[in-house]
Amino acid sequence: MTDNMGIDAKELYQLRSYLRDRGILFAYSGYVTETVLSGVGEALRQKLALEATDTKTVRSVFAIFVEQMQNIIRYSAETEHKDAGNARELRYGVLTVAQTGERYAVHAGNVIHRADQPRLETRLAALVAMDRDALKSAYKTQLKAGPEPDSKGASVGLIEIARRASAPLGYGFTAVDEDHVFFAIEARI
């Protein structure tokens, strides 16, 4: 008997195969909180350690994971007041870590307000155009900017992601409904 409890094992198996075929060794989909970050982060570190990757790569993947998760947490906290009905949706994040040989790719996605897309796109386009030296000086400028409105914090996080990545960041948006879009970002290490 393969279906003795009546559930469709095939569906879950297909999901597993889908992830595996894409080289995804780690995936998280769900609400993102600091507690989740701690637990999932620890699991990710253990997984990476098992893959016997070099120390610097493990730390870079982990650092990108932390910034991406914290960007989602910060964004949902910042915008909750103006979108109380969707607060739960905004806290929902998807994060995957894929491996191809010695290379890694971290993808993260979350729902944002359509109105915030242009600002984010401008920022990302600027980051993608920067070389390592420009990223370094942008990072420092932001660190010295002092405690500014939270939106600044998010950009230090993005700069950190760009610096840890070994190739320019990838990103994209897709419509969810009238007021929301799904934002996805990719960092290769």
Partner: peptide, 10 residues
Amino acid sequence: LIYFNSASAK
């Protein structure tokens, strides 16, 4: 320090 995030960097 082994690792610090961007918020700690500030």
